[in-house]
């Protein structure tokens, strides 16, 4: 993907993010933050490629660290968000 299309994606996604997030009520701001922690764990896809490549030990070690950290974010983030949101659901 060339730089300009990457930049286009980046800028449009920021505008989309601003539009979306301003509609989240203050009541849900903490789950929003833990949920966005989980989503930013998307770095995991980059981490998987580094950890599973055959490009040498250093790459694999860095990949392993990245996989661990990103997985903590993904699993921990989604689970704790779910735990909080379940408390809001019950009436």
């Amino acid at each position: 993907m060339d730089f300009v299309s990457q930049l286009t994606l980046f800028v449009l996604a920021i505008f989309l993010g601003v539009e979306l997030i301003t509609k989240v009520p203050p009541t849900l701001h903490t789950p929003l933050m833990s949920g966005s922690n989980a989503i930013s764990g998307i770095t995991l896809v980059g981490a998987l490629i580094a950890a599973g490549s055959d490009a040498g030990l250093l790459i694999n070690v860095l990949g392993f660290i990245a996989v661990v950290l990103a997985t903590i974010n993904v699993i921990g983030g989604f689970m704790v968000t779910n735990r909080m949101l379940a408390m809001f659901k019950r009436k």
Binding site: A13, G17, S36, S40
Partner: peptide, 23 residues
């Protein structure tokens, strides 16, 4: 995401970036 040319990282990262900025 820019480093890897990975659209998923670019879009998601900017959503989270926007969210944090608003908060």
């Amino acid at each position: 995401g820019f480093v890897m040319g990975n659209s998923a990282l670019i879009v998601t990262g900017s959503l989270v970036g926007a969210s944090g900025l608003i908060l």
